[in-house]
Design a protein around this nucleic acid. Structure first.
Length: 312
DNA sequence: CCCCAGGCTTTTC
DNA sequence: GAAAAGCATGGG
């Protein structure tokens, strides 16, 4: 049995933009119910639908959770207590009016606060590969190593899979897991090793959630894991550890920094040195403590407006 | 066969 | 140390 809560936001919010902009790869639509998005978070099935610009509704199973628990979960997940007013500096719209025109429609996108482990694994699947394939990998991993969970909503059975536990992936067979990771065995092995170092306590997300840890230190800690470089580390920091100052730079970000802001226009590959240089320069045009938040909005805008790419 | 996709690792100078 | 080459896989 499902109950419903209504969430009033302090500012306009785009649910679809937030869930389908390439920060989470696990949400999907319910068949034949085009407005309803569904996922399992913290083992809790959640269905949400946008009602107005600043209002959405969330459904929860009364057997699984309570209204107050869900309300808290939603507030955290969408970072609703965060005011998006100061994401871009005051001067931004005057300095870059053309970019601002394109981008202002994307300001309702919210950067999510996701589970660190899920963020770690999903972004390990995101190297040199298209968004559709990333989504496919995450779906397959969840289907094979997660727990199946069926719910009934509006007379319809919806089958969901929770994201796998740490131990499920730590104990996975490399060969079997590689069939989930686009047949990439190196990636499969890296995922197993990463999950292993978490279950052994070598990597402790509880410690890494401490916001007083400098970004550079956090990044270096995550980079100790095989298969993780600056970019993936920054994604984990931004989307999984609530570090809005982390600014992941990939091929798209590099492109818009050059085209829109004249930063690092050289077409060469993204070496660690260029990465750090671009990172530092990007912070001069945006609010450093929200660089990652702003970057994700620009990222989504760039892909939609300039490249006409789909994220799902 | 080319290039591209939300890069990372190893080799080489 | 930092730059260059190598690596891995599917899709258009």
């Amino acid at each position: 049995m499902f109950n419903r809560i209504v969430i009033n936001c302090l500012s306009d919010i785009s649910i679809e933009g937030s869930l389908f902009s390439g920060q989470t790869f696990r949400w999907r639509l319910i068949e034949e119910m085009p407005e309803y998005f569904v996922n399992i978070i913290n083992s809790i099935p959640i269905i949400i639908r946008q009602l107005k610009m600043d209002i959405f509704e969330a459904y929860y199973e009364t057997e699984t959770t309570t209204e107050s628990e869900l309300s808290e979960l939603i507030t955290t997940y969408f970072q609703l207590e965060l005011s998006p007013d100061n994401i871009f500096p005051e001067m931004f719209s005057r300095h870059y009016p053309e970019v601002w025109q394109k981008m202002k429609n994307y300001l309702t996108l919210r950067v999510l606060r996701q589970d660190p482990f899920e963020t770690l694994i999903t972004f390990m699947c995101a190297q040199g590969i298209g968004m559709q394939i990333i989504r496919r990998q995450v779906e397959t991993i969840s289907r094979i190593y997660g727990k199946e969970r069926s719910v009934f909503f509006n007379g319809r059975e919806v089958t969901l899979f929770s994201f796998p536990t740490v131990s499920a992936l730590a104990e996975a067979d490399p060969e079997k897991l590689s069939r989930c990771t686009n047949n990439n065995r190196t990636r499969a092995r890296n995922i197993i090793t990463a999950a292993g170092s978490i279950s052994q306590g070598k990597l402790d997300f509880k410690k890494l959630q401490d916001k007083s840890i400098p970004l550079e230190e956090l990044r270096n800690e995550l980079c100790k894991l095989g298969g993780i470089g600056f970019k993936i580390a920054d994604c984990i920091a931004l989307f999984g550890l609530g570090r809005m100052d982390a600014f992941p730079i990939d091929t798209h970000v590099k492109q818009y920094l050059g085209k829109w802001f004249g930063i690092g226009a050289d077409p060469g590959s993204l070496t660690p040195a260029t990465y750090l240089k671009l990172d530092a320069e990007a912070r001069t045009i945006m609010n450093p403590c929200f660089a990652g938040y702003a970057g994700h909005i620009l990222f989504h805008c760039w892909r939609c407006e300039e490249k006409r790419l789909r994220t799902c």
